[in-house]
């Protein structure tokens, strides 16, 4: 249990998708103009990461990794399909996004109205694929750890985009040098926020 909490907190603050790895920057920069839309996209990311990382964990563990097919019988134990993992992960993400969209549409029209337009954007959000690839590289021990990593990463991304959107709403009233307006200053602010987040580095729970 402690370990799960540790992974969760670490994924939010120390290994923040945006500030430590720059993943999902495209939509982060493009959609962070207002807090409201950022919240919507952020929630969608938490949601999708929370689902795709554990699903990809199972696929990696029981289909792709070296010796993962051992459950089919001893003669399959030497098969290593890990070269297919990129394709499998992206396929899972694309279909999961589709599935989630349909499920939400059916069961919660209000949530769909809020999240709906963001879901298609998410298939090409690098932080989603990044989540699965990091999960694979870091070799989590069980599905609970993978889930808590996925959710933590999503929450970290959510925090980052909402924070930058709030700052961008305020910065409209400041006198930024003309060439830096918009994109340039957002880059620099993100850098400064990244430095602030580095203060979390080395937290041991």
């Amino acid at each position: 249990m402690e370990n799960l909490f540790d992974i969760f907190i670490k994924a939010i603050f120390v290994e923040n998708m945006i500030f430590a790895y720059f993943l999902g920057m495209c939509s982060y920069l493009a959609v962070s103009k207002t807090v409201e839309t950022s919240t919507g996209l952020g929630l969608a990311v938490v949601f999708v990461l929370g689902i795709t990382v554990p699903v990809d964990y199972l696929i990696n563990e029981y289909l792709l990794a070296d010796g993962a097919l051992a459950w089919l019988g001893p003669e399959f134990a030497t098969i290593d399909l890990s070269f297919l993992s990129f394709i499998m992960f992206i396929a899972v993400i694309a279909s999961m996004v589709q599935l989630v969209e349909m499920v939400i549409e059916k069961f919660s029209p209000t949530l769909y109205a809020n999240l709906g337009i963001f879901l298609p954007l998410i298939a090409v959000n690098c932080s989603i694929l990044g989540g699965s690839l990091f999960m694979q590289e870091r070799d989590y021990n069980n599905i609970a750890e993978a889930t808590s990593f996925g959710l933590g990463s999503g929450v970290g991304w959510f925090l980052a985009i909402v924070a930058i959107a709030a700052i961008r709403e305020k910065i409209r009233y400041s006198n930024v040098p003309a060439p830096l307006r918009g994109l340039g200053i957002t880059f620099i602010i993100t850098g400064l926020m990244g430095i602030a987040f580095m203060a979390f580095m080395g937290i041991e729970l």
Binding site: F22, L180, G184, F187, G191
Partner: peptide, 24 residues
């Protein structure tokens, strides 16, 4: 450290846009 990449890109944007004001 990671944030430096953002600063450098920020500066590139700055330089580029001061030379091409139509991009501002």
């Amino acid at each position: 450290l990671p944030p430096a990449a953002l600063f450098v890109v920020g500066i590139i944007i700055w330089v580029q846009r001061s030379r091409h004001p139509e991009l501002v």
